[in-house]
Design a binder for these strands. Structure first.
Lengths: 219, 219
DNA sequence: GCGAATGTTCAACAATTGTTGAAAAAGAAT
DNA sequence: ATTCTTTTTCAACAATTGTTGAACATTCGC
């Protein structure tokens, strides 16, 4: 025993370091592009420890995916509820709903926690994957998405459900590419736009998507 | 390189069978999620043959990516030129430009050639990947994209270049998720929307995106 | 203190990976 | 037929993969 004298940050416990390392590497290279040894090396941990804490590689992958899901869903659900509370009987506008859908993501990344950035890039990877998408997205995110779709339906009276879903698909795609952080827009624009500038990304995405919804669903 | 006098369909030469198999498997599982032996098995070919024709695994990956790129670029460029030819001095409208950007993709898949479907899914995988995107997209697609962006700038006089690029980013994201064919929209909508129904996808995407461009860039 | 539960390391496993060189088969040219 | 070139197979390589069981270390309840 000794006085720990925690003058500075105590090293994060190994279990979390593994999750952090896996999060970052899976987000950049995908499930098959990362080895357990790479994860262990980045986490400064023995290879066998990942197995001890999480079991198989696939279980670790799912653990990473699930770690921040609830917290993220809560933030978005809360944002939606808040916009509904301040709105009248007819409910929030399309812009307000989309804002509630997107801004919590911006806030998550603006905490300065790099982990959130990696996590959202991982969601982009999974959502865009024909293999992982159908296997992993529904379970964690469907309920919340349906809440937003219901709110959008109310804000767009008379819209065909089919149209709403297609518009949501477009929104989801624009969001996914944003979260992936591929820097492609940086190159195309010659540095005029920066993938890391999420405020700019969302400031442009929200009116863009809202106008799209109105054009397709309100007519 | 080869004389074009095939009277009837001969069994596809082994070299092309390898490309077809690699195309399909890379599109679904990514570069690291596929082994050369899986590709060889699907192509009904020996493992070493892939190496003989294409060299390293990475070279095969790039060969798959490049095989249909030129043909696709030509189709899109031609569609853009056609819309410019019929338009007056002020050039085609935003809808017409986006239509020229998207419809060739729909046509490619409607040939019934499954290869095109896999190829476009592969583009979605690469475009959404933080690792492959910056390494492979620019080289083949930047010139064409800049042509479309120039046309959009002309159709949206006074728009800030920054805004145009962000709008293109949103368009690219919606398109990417469509090409990925993840069936997520099928699940969410309870079968109301189908990922394979590209006509419905593009019929909804075009007005959606056009309205977004106008909202963000014309004001 | 002791002992049990938990955390961590070590060494090794069988399986699979991309890649290769040499042999064999097929095709083209003379 | 004979050579030469191209295509295809075969067998094997060193390296790396995920996973495991047993040993070692640490922490915690008492």
């Amino acid at each position: 025993m000794s006085q720990p004298s925690p003058t500075i940050q105590p090293a994060a416990p190994r279990r979390e370091r593994i999750l952090d390392a896996a999060e970052e590497l899976f987000a950049e290279h995908g499930f098959d592009g990362v080895t357990l040894r790479q994860i262990a090396r980045r986490a400064e941990v023995d290879v066998a420890l990942a197995n001890y804490h999480f079991g198989k590689k696939l279980d670790l992958f799912q653990a990473v995916f699930e770690r921040r899901a609830e917290s993220l869903n809560d933030a978005r659900r809360q944002a939606l509820r808040a916009s509904q509370a301040t709105a009248g009987d007819e409910g929030p506008t399309v812009e307000q709903i989309i804002e509630a859908f997107l801004r919590p993501l911006e806030l998550a990344q603006e905490t300065g926690d790099e982990g959130w950035r990696h996590y959202l890039a991982l969601i982009a990877y999974i959502n865009n994957s024909p293999y992982w998408g159908p296997r992993m997205m529904s379970h964690l995110f469907d309920d919340l998405v349906q809440e937003f779709i219901a709110a959008l339906s109310k804000a767009l009276p008379g819209a065909k459900p089919e149209d709403i879903y297609w518009c949501y698909h477009n929104l989801s795609g624009a969001l996914t590419l944003t979260l992936a952080q591929t820097k492609r827009i940086d190159n195309l624009s010659g540095g005029l736009c920066r993938s890391e500038d999420l405020q700019a990304a969302y400031d442009h995405m929200i009116p863009f998507v809202a106008a799209g919804f109105r054009e397709v669903c309100q007519r």
